[in-house]
Design a protein around this nucleic acid. Structure first.
Length: 443
RNA sequence: GUGGGUGUAGCUCAGUUGGUUAGAGCGCCAGGUUGUGGUCCUGGAGGUCGCGGGUUCGAGACCCGUCACUCACCCCA
């Protein structure tokens, strides 16, 4: 008989009480800030149809989708055929992000408000190789505004995530901003064919990591000529100069002018918000997901290799589900990344975990009497656990300490008969006998 | 997908050039006399050394394979 592994599958985790205290604390902050912006909650199913998911994330995204195999008769029927393709075995998969399900929802419920503003905090699944801060099941915390191309919406989603991070205590994060149209213009100006655009973007996204020479080398490895590479690096450097956006916005002869104008407007609007001081134009920023059409965002923080979150405008995605072209913009925070950095920096406040009081009893007190006392304490709003067995008091007190209770309520014959408890502070050892109705007040 | 590292008790890890019955700390259980924990003392349970094969008189150690975990790259949140 082989031993069954007790570990969760690779890239998946169990969350025990202390983990959940931290996760819930962060989720609570995110939720309260998102709600303060008027976003309303949404939850969507774990499983989506593959037709919903496929073709939205690019070829690599499709590879990372978890697919659910057909069951029972349907599977048996399919297996009888010869020459099976991957698509014959499955027509459902696990959600890969929260943006595509939102797009489906907006397309499906056409009576939603014209400017539907929703937030969504749920796990997503990617069949990726796990690494530090990367899991196969992880939480995203999204805010999106649909139904408007106004840059106010872009500014608001940036403000919302900036507000979250500020409230959590982050003081050194940056929201990098770029524009797909501008990026495309820079690439085509450099003489790079549209077909090589994607591969070029992946290379230039690494500019701050591997430097200009590294990017040039990588561009050539990706089949882009040295001349084009040099031209691209040159225009990127030019784009980093002060006044680039302003000049580009005015120059109607060049492509990308409207993108530059959009970013200028976004920066101006964001100045009135929590995002004002943290937005930065980063012309080398490129994001992998293929559905973005306008501004794109990514949050970085010193000391973290990846990003805390990302987002952008995707004016074409909802149109893939319905005839109506509905524009949208959104931002996604990665819960695990936030937790990782907060843990490394010890940013968590004291978080209450477990019971405040453990009710202990001597053998001359019945279990029923102890249960009644526990009920009376709980009625006061206290978090109370009852020691279930009739062990020696020393063992009961030791247990109270191991579960992290702050107090032990000791019940003997004398206390029960007097409607009291002996309340012992486990940290100081101090103990006093008080009436059971007065416990909450006396803490 | 590419390269490196590590798999020994519930956890963190020792284990000598291959040699008797595989160890420690923490945790857990019991006791140190019947209404009071944390410290201390004593005792105990708990391991087919990831799995499979090979070399050898003899393998936790060496070799091959395999699986798992992990770090870096890649990509991403």
């Amino acid at each position: 008989m082989t031993q069954i592994s007790t570990k969760p599958p690779s890239g998946m985790r169990d969350f025990l009480a202390s983990d959940l205290a931290r996760r819930r604390h962060v989720i609570g902050v995110i939720q309260s800030v998102y709600e303060s912006f008027g976003f309303v909650p949404l939850e969507t199913p774990t499983i989506e149809n593959l037709s919903t998911l496929l073709g939205k994330y690019g070829p690599e995204g499709d590879q990372l989708l978890y697919r659910l195999m057909h069951r029972r008769e349907k599977l048996a029927r399919v297996l009888e055929q010869g020459a099976l393709k991957e698509s014959d075995l499955s027509d459902e998969g696990l959600r890969y992000d929260l943006t595509v399900p939102l797009a489906r929802v907006v397309a499906n419920y056409r009576d939603l408000p014209a400017f539907y503003r929703r937030y969504q905090i749920q796990p997503v699944w990617r069949a990726d190789r796990p690494a530090k801060g990367r899991f196969r099941e992880f939480y995203q915390c999204d805010v999106d505004v649909t139904g408007t191309t106004a840059m106010v919406a872009d500014a608001e989603v940036c403000a919302a995530v900036a507000g979250v991070l500020q409230k959590l205590g982050f003081a050194d994060f940056t929201i990098h901003v770029n524009h797909r149209e501008l990026l495309r213009a820079l690439v085509s100006d450099a003489g790079i064919a549209p077909s090589a655009e994607g591969t070029a973007l992946v290379a230039i996204d690494k500019l701050d990591k591997i430097g200009a020479e590294g990017v040039l080398k990588e561009l050539q490895e990706r089949g882009i000529s040295a001349a084009c590479g040099e031209a691209l690096m040159g225009s990127l450097a030019a784009a980093k100069e002060v006044g680039f956006l302003e000049a580009r916005a005015k120059d109607e002869t060049k492509s990308g002018a409207s993108g530059a104008r959009a970013l200028l407007e976004l920066f101006a609007l964001a100045r009135e918000t929590t995002a004002g001081a943290v937005l930065r134009f980063s012309p080398e920023l490129a994001r992998g997901l293929s559905y973005y059409t306008g501004p794109i965002f990514e949050i970085t923080v010193p000391g973290l290799a990846g990003s805390l979150g990302g987002g952008g405008r995707y004016d074409g995605l909802i149109g893939m589900f319905t005839r109506a072209q509905i524009p949208a913009v959104g931002f996604s925070l990665g819960l695990e990344r936030i937790l990782l950095v907060m843990e490394e920096r010890e940013m968590f406040p004291e978080l209450a975990v477990g019971p405040q009081i453990l009710v202990c009893r001597f053998p001359d007190v019945s279990a029923a009497e102890a249960l009644r006392a526990a009920s009376q304490l709980r009625a006061q709003g206290l978090r109370v656990e009852l020691y279930p067995e009739a062990d020696k008091l020393g063992k009961q007190l030791a247990y109270a300490t191991t579960i992290g209770a702050q107090y032990a309520a000791v019940l003997g014959r004398v206390e029960v008969d007097g409607g009291a408890i002996a309340l012992k502070n486990l940290a100081t050892g101090e103990q006093r006998t008080i009436s059971i109705e007065d416990v909450l007040k006396s803490l």
